[in-house]
């Protein structure tokens, strides 16, 4: 079997400040109330809420701020297993989806495949090239679209695309022809190419990001939540384009997403990830048959596999 991408028993851990305050720094109930009241997922924000309360009791914001700083300094370090023994094999020409909530390790995995992060253990091979030992060879084969469309905001789309294409050794003449073709297919008006990026909508920026990735004709395209935050029309445009890319190019696509419908529509196979682990891999249809029950959806699959309600997961993330 010819694989475009092999991820074999990959581990990645990070050492981060604990979200749990050290004993004695704050009453547990005060922390819970503060975090709940502010709705803050960020520990610093949650701690800020608690600190302000403590400060109010002690008669001022200054002691509270000191308390928060002390809390942040003393918060113990803990190990976070971002990717925990993931094994995946993506066939050539496949659109392979990774589905999971925020923080489940999807983007970390994509960064490892992109050669932007070194795994602690395990092997990643792109068309047989080891991502750790041969990053240069892997970089020639891949490109990535991330959830944040990262550009030089003051430059126009055209200038950003020229810069990206130059990095891949494309000549200006080749850039012109390719950009025109891709922009038309993405429904990106020609005049928008000469507008500064900061004046483009989020959807248009994301289309330019996709154009940038496709300009280099990657054989493995990594799409890390490419439609997150897009309006429905832009989302449809991007999804149509992904289908077209697969149809017309000999490209393999790794797509991470929050969107169950998108994954079901686009992906040949899907890996469900939770807390750094892959908990199931199959076609959307088979996953639904196996874990979703009669008439089940991918949301049912997620609930069955993780014990977590998908809507609730998304609501917590929002």
């Amino acid at each position: 079997m010819e694989y475009a991408l092999e991820v074999i028993d990959v581990h990645k851990r990070f050492i981060e400040r604990s979200e749990v305050p050290p004993a004695g720094m704050m009453p547990p109930e005060a922390g819970a109330v503060a975090a709940g009241a502010t709705g803050a997922a960020d520990p610093a924000v949650a701690a800020g809420g608690a600190g302000v309360r403590a400060g109010a009791r002690s008669g001022g914001a200054e002691p509270a701020a000191r308390g928060v700083r002390r809390w942040l300094r003393r918060a113990p370090l803990e190990e976070v297993r971002a990717v925990d023994g993931v094994t995946l094999r993506v066939r050539r020409g496949e659109i392979f989806g990774i589905l999971g909530p925020n923080g489940c390790g999807k983007s970390t995995l994509v960064r490892i495949v992109s050669t932007l992060l070194l795994p602690d253990a395990g092997t990643v091979r792109v068309f047989g090239h080891d991502a750790v030992r041969e990053p240069h060879a892997v970089r020639r084969l891949i490109n990535r679209v991330s959830v944040e469309a990262a550009f030089f905001k003051k430059l126009s789309s055209w200038e950003n695309l020229c810069y990206a294409a130059r990095l891949y050794g494309l000549s200006p003449r080749a850039i012109r022809a390719e950009v025109a073709r891709i922009a038309e297919r993405l429904g990106l008006p020609w005049e928008k190419l000469f507008t500064s990026m900061e004046h483009l909508s989020r959807g248009q920026q994301q289309k330019v990001a996709i154009a940038r990735a496709l300009l280099t004709s990657p054989v493995l395209l990594l799409l890390d939540e490419p439609t997150t935050g897009l309006d429905p029309r832009s989302k449809r445009d991007v999804q149509r384009f992904v289908e077209e890319v697969r149809r017309e190019h000999d490209a393999t696509i790794l797509l991470t997403s929050h969107d169950m419908d998108e994954v079901e529509r686009l992906c040949d196979r899907v890996a469900v990830m939770n807390e750094g682990r892959v908990i199931a891999v199959d076609t959307p249809q088979k996953l639904k048959q196996r874990y979703g029950g009669p008439g089940g959806t991918l949301e049912d699959v997620f609930l069955r596999l993780t014990g977590r309600d998908w809507e609730e997961v998304l609501a917590n993330e929002a």
Binding site: E2, G128, Y168, R173, A174, E178, L215, D250
Partner: peptide
């Protein structure tokens, strides 16, 4: 193995890439 898994000619990087 590497040879067998080589990407298609011209597939990696646009054809005009230097």
């Amino acid at each position: 193995r590497d040879a067998a898994l080589s990407p298609p000619p011209g597939g990696a990087l646009a054809p005009a890439a230097r």
